[in-house]
């Protein structure tokens, strides 16, 4: 509590430089006298915490595209992801790819029938060493210190698309036009985006904040497991301990946080 208040006030200092908000609190203090308790911010009581959130995708449980449909649907519906007929303007947070596209640098010949035929689920890897964050000129995309999620600040993005060039996983989409007319059913509790900004999966930060698992995990019927990569007791670590897993383009050193059991 004390800590968060301090941080809130620090933030005020930063914001004052950035947006000239100092008069706010001066005016406020003048009105109420210095004895009045200052307002503060804090985290919600039910928030799920982790050092680095990670996901394990158990591809052994995937048989056909219809197994993944509810997962993709749950995410895209919840987050007002538009659907464009024009492939050029496509926006997707989580989608399916064949093995050779999900793992294009490991194009094994004579793949076994199952891997060859099943769809692979791909999304932002929330890399531990994210090249997109390195590239962004405004810190509009940043790695959140508290839990390792690679976030997007849609308010700050200038739409230069450097992050899209930097991402080796094609995880990022750009709003080439106003997305609103292309959202079938709008979830009114979640914002849409505006034209000219980049977007992607954020590991459902809004759900983690209130103690819920990401929407895709909840809809996955056990295909997806979510947890703290640095907690040995977490579900993801248990799965990783017991099974052979791979990650996309590991040789690039980005350290993806999405693991695939094959």
């Amino acid at each position: 509590m004390e800590n968060s208040r301090r941080r809130f006030l620090e933030m005020l200092g930063i914001a004052a430089v950035a947006a000239g908000t100092q008069p706010v609190w001066n005016a406020f203090a003048a009105e109420h006298g210095s004895a009045t308790p200052e307002p503060s911010v804090k985290k919600g009581p039910n928030e799920l915490k982790a050092k680095q959130w990670a996901m394990v995708i158990d591809t052994r449980k995937i048989e056909k595209a219809s197994d993944l449909e509810p997962i993709i649907e749950a995410c895209h519906k919840l987050h007002n992801v538009p659907h464009f007929e024009n492939k050029h303007h496509e926006i997707k947070w989580i989608w399916e790819e064949e093995y050779i596209h999900a793992f294009p640098t490991d194009p094994n010949r004579f793949l076994d029938e199952r891997i060859h035929h099943i769809p692979f689920l791909v999304l932002c890897n929330h890399c531990e060493n994210p090249p997109c964050v390195r590239a962004c000129p405004t810190k509009a995309t940043f790695k959140r210190e508290s839990d390792g999620i690679v976030m997007m600040d849609f308010h700050r993005c200038i739409g230069c698309r450097f992050c899209m060039a930097a991402c080796p996983y094609g995880a990022r989409s750009f709003n080439f036009r106003d997305p609103r007319p292309f959202i079938k059913e709008t979830n009114k509790e979640f914002p849409t985006r505006m034209k000219g900004v980049v977007e992607k999966c954020q590991f459902c930060t809004e759900r983690l904040a209130v103690g819920l698992q990401p929407a895709c995990v909840e809809a996955s019927n056990g295909i997806l497991t979510f947890g703290d990569l640095y907690d040995e007791e977490s579900d993801v670590r248990k799965l990783l301990k017991e099974n052979f897993s791979i990650r996309r383009k590991q040789s690039l050193g980005t350290e993806p946080s999405v693991y695939y059991i094959v």
Binding site: H88, I91, M164, F176, R177, K195, G196
Partner: peptide
């Protein structure tokens, strides 16, 4: 309208 009036796309950004 947005950059959609150009030939750029999700892949060629």
């Amino acid at each position: 309208f947005g950059l959609g009036i150009t030939g750029m796309s999700r892949d060629v950004s």
